[in-house]
Write a protein that binds this DNA or RNA. Structure first.
Lengths: 152, 152
DNA sequence: CTCTGTGCAAAGGATTTGCATGTAC
DNA sequence: GTACATGCAAATCCTTTGCACAGAG
C-alpha cells in the first residue's frame, strides 16, 4: 500500500530536521514542489501559486520566507535569471550552472565540473573566500532559432 | 585649448550615432559616467544620482530608459548582482566576469578568457546560440575576512 | 508549555508606464 | 516640421516586515 506519498513526506521531514529546521506543512510543500520531476527551476511566485492550489491559505510571504531559510540551510539554491530569482533543490555536493533560452525560457542544467578548478584558482589568486559561483549562459536554443528564422 | 572634454563629448556622440541613436545630453552623460575611470560598475540609481548632480532635472526614469537602450544597442552590459542590476561599458569583443565581495561590495573584473572555450563548447554541445555569458563569483575578500574574524 | 512559524496587511524599493512638452535631426 | 526623447507623477512588480495567532517539538 502506497508507500510513495508517505516516503516523500518522510523525506522532506527528515531533510528539514537534519538541517535543524522545524518540519511544517508549508516547508514540506515547498520542498515537494521543487523536488518534483527532475530538477525544476521555479520563482518564488511560481512556488507560491503552486502551493496555493494545494492549500489556498498558503501565504506568499511564507513562500519567500521558507525559500530564504532553505537557501540558508543549503537545501535549496537560488539563481537570478533576467528579472527574478529562481530556486531549485541544491543538487550534488557541488552546484551546477545554467544555459537559458531567451525565447522560450527553457533551462539546461550544466554539470558543476565545467568550472571546477577555474573558480578555485580565481579565488586564490584574488584572496577571495568563495561562497557562490553562478554561471549563466543565455542565448537561443535550436528550436527557437529555427522558429525565428525558418528555412526561407 | 582643452581637447579632452571635447574629445569625450565627441566620442559619446559618435558612438551613439553609430548605434543609430539620437545624441542627447542625457545619453552622453550616462556614457561619460560609465566610461569614467577604468571600468565602473554602477546601478541605475548610482547613475541617476551622479547625473543629477550635473543636471538636477535629470530624471530617474530617464536613467533607466537610457540604460535600457544602450544595452539593446550593445554599448553597455548589464549584470545582476544580488538585488539590483549593475551596468558598465560593454568592453572588449568579449565580455568579462565578476568577483564580488559580499561584505564590502567590492568588485574585481575577471578577464574574459577564463571561459573562452568552455562557453563555446557548451553552446555547441546543446545547440544554443550564445548571446551572453555571465559568471559571477561571490565570497569575501581578504580584507573583510580579516575584519570579521580578527587574529584572535 | 515554549518557541518558532505562519497569515495578513501594509511598507519598501526597484523599475516601468502614460502623457504632455521639449528637442535632435 | 516630425519623430523621438525627456520630465513628471503615478502605477506596478517583487520582496520584506510587524504583529497577533496557530502549531511543532
Amino acid at each position: 500500500m502506497m508507500p510513495t506519498a508517505m516516503a516523500v513526506r518522510t523525506d522532506s521531514h527528515a531533510l528539514l530536521r537534519r538541517a535543524g529546521l522545524r518540519s511544517t506543512p508549508q516547508r514540506q510543500t515547498v520542498l515537494d514542489l521543487l523536488g518534483d520531476g527532475e530538477h525544476r527551476h521555479l520563482t518564488a511566485d511560481d512556488i507560491w501559486r503552486a502551493a496555493s492550489s494545494r492549500n489556498p491559505s498558503f501565504n506568499r510571504s511564507t513562500a519567500y520566507r521558507v525559500l530564504d531559510q532553505l537557501c540558508d540551510a543549503g537545501i535549496v539554491q537560488q539563481t537570478r535569471f533576467g528579472d527574478s530569482a529562481h530556486f531549485e533543490i541544491a543538487g550534488a555536493p557541488e552546484r551546477h550552472y545554467h544555459l537559458v533560452c531567451r525565447s522560450c525560457g527553457s533551462i539546461v542544467n550544466l554539470p558543476s565540473d565545467v568550472l571546477a578548478d577555474i573558480s578555485g584558482r580565481l579565488g586564490r589568486q584574488h584572496g577571495f573566500t568563495i561562497r557562490s559561483v553562478d554561471l549563466t549562459i543565455e542565448g537561443e536554443c535550436r528550436a527557437c532559432r529555427q522558429a525565428v528564422s525558418p528555412p526561407a
